[in-house]
Amino acid sequence: MARKVLVLGEVREGSLRNVSFEAVAAAKTSAEGGEVVGVLFGDSVSALGAEFIQYGADRVVTVEDEQLKQYTSDGYSQALLAVIDQEDPEGIIFGHTAQGKDLAPRIAAKLESGLISDVTDLEVEGGNLVFTRPIYSGKAFEKKIVTDGLLFATIRPNNIAPLEKDESRTGDVSSLSVEIKNLRQVIKEVVRKATEGVDLSEAKVIVAGGRGVKSEEGFEPLKELADVLGGAVGASRGACDADYCDYSLQIGQTGKVVTPDLYIACGISGAIQHLAGMSNSKIIVAINKDPEANIFKVADYGIVGDLFEVLPLLTKEFKELLVNA
């Protein structure tokens, strides 16, 4: 059944995030032949519309306002409700990002609709659009369908492949004028403290440290390796509780659930709560002094050894490989 589906693109530092292209692919599946309409908010975003279309959107609607430069729940929901009012979609797809998680439930409540969060796969099965999502932090999976009303979902970064970019694709980029007013949240300051550049939830490579890292400085060799691989640094709860790093890096049942292509676990024993957060990564490498460590049970490749000896060698080896590549 063809349906019109909106996809909210997410702009960070002037570019569309990768998850937005993945969301377009998910929208395309959801639309079942219907129209996919990209939606972009910001102070100046219409230039990004063309790229959104090259990744599969049929056309793009923008709302531009100085007050939409930074995400606030009030600002973005006013803008989105105006677009929904204009477009009357039958489906909506967001990325399951900080922004998507914050905004989608509110919009769903407003529209009295269901919402399927954190989707890792979707397909048409027996006439139904079926969404797969992890539960119990990835210890199990459930398949869900929408039984009433709008088809609304947020998709987890890194799981649904984006469509191939087609530079010959063109479409209409139109702007909708919305009066953004009475924002109840005012952002006073943004403090960036994550490892520069790559975000954990979107990282293709994660180098994570546990208690075996031993100190804050102990994370340095992990950072160096992550830099070489263009990845992000993560941590187990043990490392966070011991104050070696910030809780924002925590991966596990409490903390972030991640699914990178490559997960390198350094000095992490592999408690069940940690495994829940990372065991669905494509390839897992474990580096641990203890050959009996639980982490080796989920690892594709393991090195029994001291991470402080292994990591510098590994960083050097990858550097050479990537220089030659």
Binding site: S113, D148, I303, L313
Partner: peptide
Amino acid sequence: EAKTKTIEISLPPKKEAGKVLEGELEDQVK
């Protein structure tokens, strides 16, 4: 009344035990 419905619950595919490398550390890294 719910707007969505769970139609199936499953466990993730079981991971096969991986390969623990052996030999000199430098060779293992290579």
